[in-house]
Each structure stands twice: as structure tokens, then as C-alpha cells.
């Protein structure tokens, strides 16, 4: 292979004039983590609401919930990012649209919203499956005790569901982190984008991508480890886990 390896490239100054390439990768890692954390929060909140809607006895709520899931699941994430970034500001009233376009860090906010809502559809599916996997008697027993339906969800059904769903939710969190790389298409300088920039300026393709790959693997291991600790603390004696089908990225 006629490729010139140069592993010391990481300590050389990047074109921004202040940071080494290594530092730019670390900055990218920070953006990846912040974006993923914000997006996952949105995904959890919206996913829970929609997931709950789909298990209520009201047909309008079920239909609304499944419409939401269908829309966000059947359009590629990249296209959704473009819709939020390029199309939305044009459809809003002029002043609002212009304000959006001039927002500093617009790509960050867009990425958070787009990624968050995209992931929320998948989390909604998990939440729904989790709630439906609970014995029917749990809901009936709660209502028989005089709880209202919202109380039954808040005190009985959801606390159980989240515990059962910890493993699948962990993989959705990992998916969120991985999918945040798509935001480089709208200019977010997250980890993959930094590796790409490093490759473009230094021509050290494989060093740049190797570094990014290793960082992603480390993040993966840390998140998995942390979630396993959480899982251990929250396990309920005598209750088995729930395994959701693994599809997608």
C-alpha cells in the first residue's frame, strides 16, 4: 500500500490556527455528546407521550399516535434534517424564518429537534410494546383501586415499563449518538465532521477515521457500562426483562 502513515499528525496545528487536530476531535466529541443528550431527552419525552397515547382506550389517541410514528419512521433522517433546516424557515412567516436562518448554532438546534423527533418515533414503539407486555391485570387493578387513568400510568404502568425497557432504551441511546453524525450534512461540527475535516486538510485519511472510530467505540462502551449499572440498581427482584425485536440502526 502506497499510503504514508503519520500518527503524529494529531499533535499538529489544525487550519483554525489555535487547536491541534487532537483538540478538534475532542471538540467534535463534545458536540456529539451534547447533541445526542439533548436529542435523546426530546426523544424520551415525545416518545413516552406518543407511546402512551397508543395504549390508551381512545381510538383518536391511538390513531394520532400511529400517524406520528408512521410519519417520523418512514422518512430518512437525512431528509428530515433537510426539511427542518432548509424548508421550515421558508414556510414560516418571513420575520420568523429570517430569525431562524440567522440564529448562531442553527445547525445544532436543528439537529437536536430533527434527531430528537426521529428517535422519538422509535422510542414510542418501544414504550408501547413495553406497556402492552405488562399483565393486563396491572391496569385493571390500578383502576379498581380508584386511580384515574393518568394516575395508573404515572404510578404503576410507566415505572414498570421504563425498568423493563432499560436494555432496549440503552440501544436507542446508542443509536441516537450514532445518528447524530448525520447532522454533519447541515454543518454541525460533531465528531465525524471533525474527522472528515481533518482528512481534508491533512490528507491523513486513515489516522483521522481510526481516531473517530476509536472514540465512538469508547463512548459506546462507557454508555453500555453506565446503563448496566443503572439497570442493576433498578432491577426488581423476581421480574424478568423484556426483549424487544432488534431492527434498524
Amino acid at each position: 500500500m502506497n499510503y504514508h502513515w503519520n500518527w503524529s499528525i494529531f499533535w499538529e496545528l489544525s487550519p483554525d490556527g489555535t487547536h491541534t487536530y487532537f483538540a478538534t476531535l475532542m471538540l467534535g466529541t463534545a458536540w456529539t455528546l451534547i447533541t445526542s443528550a439533548c436529542a435523546f431527552t426530546i426523544a424520551l419525552v415525545f416518545g413516552s407521550i406518543v407511546g402512551v397515547l397508543r395504549t390508551t382506550p381512545y381510538s383518536w389517541a391511538m390513531r394520532l399516535g400511529s400517524l406520528y410514528v408512521d410519519v417520523f419512521r418512514n422518512v430518512p433522517l437525512l431528509v428530515q434534517m433537510f426539511l427542518w433546516y432548509f424548508v421550515l424557515p421558508e414556510l414560516l412567516p418571513q420575520a420568523l424564518g429570517d430569525w431562524l436562518k440567522q440564529l448562531s448554532d442553527a445547525s445544532f438546534y436543528t439537529a437536536v429537534v430533527a434527531l430528537g423527533l426521529y428517535m422519538s418515533a422509535r422510542i414510542a414503539e418501544q414504550i408501547r410494546a413495553g406497556i402492552l407486555s405488562l399483565p393486563r391485570g396491572q391496569r385493571l387493578a390500578s383502576l379498581a383501586l380508584g386511580m384515574t387513568l393518568p394516575q395508573a400510568y404515572a404510578y404503576v404502568l410507566l415505572p414498570m415499563t421504563y425498568r423493563i425497557l432499560l436494555p432496549p432504551l440503552t440501544s436507542e441511546l446508542l443509536n441516537t449518538i450514532k445518528n447524530s453524525a448525520v447532522a454533519l450534512t447541515i454543518g454541525l461540527m460533531e465528531l465525524t465532521a471533525r474527522a472528515r475535516a481533518m482528512q481534508e486538510f491533512s490528507f491523513q485519511v486513515f489516522e483521522a477515521f481510526t481516531a473517530a472510530t476509536i472514540i465512538y467505540i469508547v463512548i459506546n462502551m462507557l454508555v453500555t457500562f453506565a446503563m448496566r449499572m443503572v439497570e442493576r440498581r433498578l432491577t426488581i427482584p423476581g421480574y424478568l426483562g423484556f426483549k424487544a425485536p432488534a431492527v434498524g440502526h
Partner: peptide, 10 residues
Amino acid sequence: SVPFVLMIFW
């Protein structure tokens, strides 16, 4: 464990 976009670049 790696983003698809990064793999596409790889």
C-alpha cells in the same frame, strides 16, 4: 458501534 456516515467515509 460506529455511525453509518463514518463507515461510508471509511
